[in-house]
Amino acid sequence: MQEITVQELKEKLDNKEDFQLIDVREDFEYETSNLGGVLIPLGGILIETDKIAKDKPVVVMCRSGKRSAAAIMQLEQQGFTNLSNLQGGILAWAAEIDPDVVVY
């Protein structure tokens, strides 16, 4: 499984690179804090594959990196090959990039 650090994600955002960010947390978690990604909770990831780009890089994130890894494993079985897991999730983002992000 490909992984990306929060520093690498920040570079992608700062450089306005063409990629998609998918957040697999639940609605209430996303409402608490998010990085602007498309919200597709893990439980519905296989139902909503049509929302996930196949023609550009996709970064999948959650709170800590575990649910996003699970999502990627499911999606790779569906033929996706363009996915990267955000190491440490929003917790790492808050710790290393933006301490103002609310963590829970």
Rank of each mutant, 00 (worst) to 15 (best):
residue 2 Q to R: 13
residue 20 Q to R: 01
residue 32 T to C: 03
residue 17 E to G: 04
residue 40 I to R: 10
residue 75 L to P: 12
residue 102 V to H: 03
residue 22 I to K: 07
residue 58 V to K: 10
residue 62 C to A: 06
residue 103 V to Q: 13
residue 36 G to S: 10
residue 16 K to D: 14
residue 25 R to Y: 04
residue 64 S to A: 14
residue 85 N to M: 06
residue 52 I to D: 10
residue 46 L to A: 08
residue 70 A to D: 15
residue 26 E to D: 15
residue 47 I to F: 12
residue 12 K to E: 07
residue 54 K to T: 15
residue 34 N to H: 15
residue 57 P to C: 01
residue 53 A to T: 04
residue 7 Q to T: 04
residue 3 E to A: 11
residue 26 E to H: 09
residue 87 Q to I: 05
residue 87 Q to G: 00
residue 2 Q to P: 10
residue 25 R to G: 00
residue 79 G to N: 01
residue 14 D to C: 00
residue 5 T to W: 00
residue 41 P to W: 07
residue 66 K to G: 15
residue 4 I to Y: 04
residue 70 A to N: 13
residue 23 D to Y: 02
residue 96 E to L: 05
residue 26 E to F: 02
residue 32 T to D: 05
residue 18 D to Q: 15
residue 92 A to L: 03
residue 25 R to S: 08
residue 84 S to A: 12
residue 39 L to E: 13
residue 76 E to M: 09
residue 89 G to Q: 09
residue 63 R to M: 14
residue 80 F to D: 11
residue 37 G to I: 10
residue 53 A to E: 14
residue 1 M to T: 13
residue 45 I to Q: 08
residue 10 K to L: 10
residue 6 V to A: 02
residue 38 V to I: 15
residue 104 Y to K: 10
residue 93 W to V: 08
residue 63 R to C: 04
residue 98 D to Y: 03
residue 99 P to T: 13
residue 64 S to D: 09
residue 44 G to C: 03
residue 43 G to N: 12
residue 93 W to Y: 07
residue 38 V to G: 03
residue 96 E to A: 02
residue 74 Q to G: 12
residue 87 Q to E: 12
residue 17 E to Y: 03
residue 32 T to M: 15
residue 33 S to C: 13
residue 94 A to W: 02
residue 87 Q to M: 09
residue 14 D to P: 01
residue 57 P to F: 01
residue 88 G to M: 01
residue 100 D to Q: 13
residue 16 K to W: 07
residue 73 M to T: 14
residue 56 K to C: 05
residue 21 L to T: 13
residue 80 F to P: 10
residue 32 T to K: 11
residue 9 L to Y: 01
residue 81 T to Y: 00
residue 102 V to R: 08
residue 9 L to P: 03
